[in-house]
């Protein structure tokens, strides 16, 4: 569904991605795991067009998208839920969700999607008129995930959805991802919590300083000694 071929990207003079090749198959959860600064977020930013690559190719359902603008890429069905939530702080919970559905023209569909998010995270329904900036950290994360579901993503890319969450909310969000997969959404997950990510993933890539030294089915990586040592805490 999504293919990156030898993707290279620079921030100024710093080469952040030094040739990334990976593929996300339709209907799977695929993780990209690695330490801080390895290039995880950058990979997602390259896919969603926030940063442009200088070499290589990114294609989505057969179409090259690496020279496209972010709004075009979003319209194709790639939704990127960014690191650090990036909500609209002075819009209400409801308006944040509405903004998430910007590319959906059908008003009925927007209403349905809002209802679906409220069912998924009932607390958001209680807080619908509250400004997003006044929510707690966990609620903000739920809103960020909920907002990214509003545009009916074909491919949902999540950047560190577990960051700074209490275990119970963490589990809730990961359960949501499994539910989404069942309903046919393809998920590209970037995580520091490799253990949790591997347990819900079908396939995973390890990224180190802008390169991918290791990849494989998640169940195999869980048993891999190198992975255990470096990412799963021994």
């Amino acid at each position: 569904m999504l293919k990156l071929t030898d993707v290279k990207l620079k921030y100024g003079y710093v080469e952040a991605l030094k040739g990334i090749t990976l593929e996300i198959k339709e209907g799977t959860i695929t993780s990209l795991l690695g330490a801080n600064g390895a290039g995880k977020s950058t990979t997602l930013r390259a896919v969603s067009g926030l940063n442009h690559i200088y070499d290589g190719e990114i294609s989505f359902m057969g179409e090259a998208i690496h020279n496209r603008s972010t709004d075009y890429i979003v319209k194709q069905g790639i939704i990127h839920c960014p690191e650090g939530r990036k909500l609209f702080p002075d819009l209400s919970v409801y308006e944040n969700l509405l903004a998430g559905a910007y590319v959906i023209q059908d008003k009925e569909r927007v209403k349905e999607n809002i209802q679906r998010v409220y069912e998924l995270f009932p607390i958001l329904s209680d807080r619908r008129k509250q400004m997003a900036g006044t929510l707690s950290g966990g609620e903000q994360q739920m809103l960020a995930v909920g907002r990214s579901l509003m545009a009916d993503p074909k491919l949902l890319m999540l950047d560190e959805p577990s960051l700074g969450l209490a275990p119970i909310i963490f589990e809730q969000i990961f359960d949501t991802l499994i539910e989404l997969k069942k309903s046919g959404t393809t998920i590209f997950l970037v995580e520091q919590n490799a253990n949790a990510a591997l347990h819900i993933s079908d396939y995973a890539y390890i990224i180190e300083v802008g390169k991918i030294p290791l990849e494989g089915p998640a169940s195999e990586l869980l048993k891999n000694d190198k992975v255990k040592q470096k990412y799963l805490g021994g």
Binding site: T70, K86, L87, F88, A99
Partner: peptide, 24 residues
């Protein structure tokens, strides 16, 4: 209005607005 929402969203967080598909 939808345009109004896009204006307010873009003014609060440019990058997030882009990720919603808003032509900032």
């Amino acid at each position: 209005t939808k345009v109004g929402l896009a204006v307010r969203a873009s003014s609060q967080h440019e990058e997030a607005a882009k990720l919603m598909g808003i032509p900032v």
